[in-house]
Design a protein around this nucleic acid. Sequence first.
DNA 1: GTATTTATTTCGTGC
DNA 2: GCACGAAGTAAATAC
Lengths: 230, 230
Amino acid sequence: MRPAPVACVPVRLVIARCSVDYGGRLSAHLPSAIRLILIKADGSVAVHSDDRAYKPLNWMSPPCTLIADGPQWTVRHDKTGDALVITIEEILHESRHKLGVDPGLQKDGVEAHLQRLLAEQIETLGGGFRLVRREFPTAIGPVDILARDANGVAVAVEIKRRGEIDGVEQLTRYLGLLNRDPLLAPVRGVFAAQEIKPQARVLAVDRGIECLTLDYDALRGFDDPSTRLF
Amino acid sequence: MRPAPVACVPVRLVIARCSVDYGGRLSAHLPSAIRLILIKADGSVAVHSDDRAYKPLNWMSPPCTLIADGPQWTVRHDKTGDALVITIEEILHESRHKLGVDPGLQKDGVEAHLQRLLAEQIETLGGGFRLVRREFPTAIGPVDILARDANGVAVAVEIKRRGEIDGVEQLTRYLGLLNRDPLLAPVRGVFAAQEIKPQARVLAVDRGIECLTLDYDALRGFDDPSTRLF
DNA sequence: GTATTTATTTCGTGC
DNA sequence: GCACGAAGTAAATAC
């Protein structure tokens, strides 16, 4: 778990003519030039030129402490002692902005996207399959996909990018619960993942759960591109 | 060679409430929040929260093109077609700044530097050692240093900052090849690194490879320290 | 917790 | 231009 950013400390943007020295695992020097200095609420300091994409010319990662002694700003790593020394010659712009806590990135090449693709192409599970719903609610959390097979039998699908034992355990818990519902029981279980670990497969088969290896590219190929943002 | 930044295009700093979608090798989504959008002269766009150090939440690397259609900013990669869609809800700050061309980072202390220092001070390996050449070519790649010891026996040196097992494997392959050459065989092997992992050391010794821990500061001591900050 | 593998890796170097 | 290795790799995952 990454430490929560201190929301009351604003991000600080400084445009300045400066030179920079770094001493740590390596030594490095930046001659004088106008650069962007980005000081984040997490304490990190990054010195950017207007090229090399998102990567700074030099930086210090948290946990670190910035001490400004006149025009000499020293950023020292709290643990390793690595130091970044920024010598400010002229400040051309400075502003501070409160960003607040970020909800963070939702990566989707992962489970959620696989879930959507599989729901759209439910017959990947077998001919005659029909989707009941995604995120089918249960008392212990939502099942990724609930479907009915060609015979009308309920099928609970747990989707993972990489199928491991805990995913099988999770699906087992859902199946135990769903099978208590007379409107659903008996419920088949399908464990679907891009890659299923041998141990997980053994456990699944032992519990009567079927395994399905998902071909992400193939699923994406059948996708209707007109319905997507990209 | 990276394309020269277009100096007349200023870096652009935007603080905005926005949501972001990315579609490329993976799909990703950022829910609405206040973030820093950094648009550099090289065309790159980076969306930062005020944590996770220098790494943006999401970004697009050059060469790419930003097209602003009202509040929807689409950054499309010119070659792969990957797209970053930033939906702007509110702009809280915007400024542009001309940085000019950056003289760039002068690095010091990586493998290449260790190699140079050791080649210059080849007697670190033992009295009477002579350098044959750096980057001595073989069919499977160049050996970092080839030398002769005081008895004229060939010595192949593999240099790493951190000595791990794969470095020993690499040197082993070189030695196997070099020892087939009657002009060189028998060839001694030396595995030199600032830090050698115990497993790597055991493997090296087992294969008759000598280990040498490099003292970077001592090697550098022969260098003129007055020109350095650290 | 440590060790190993991945990455929208990025970045440099040699061919 | 492409293949390969290194990175102040960092971050996620296996054990």
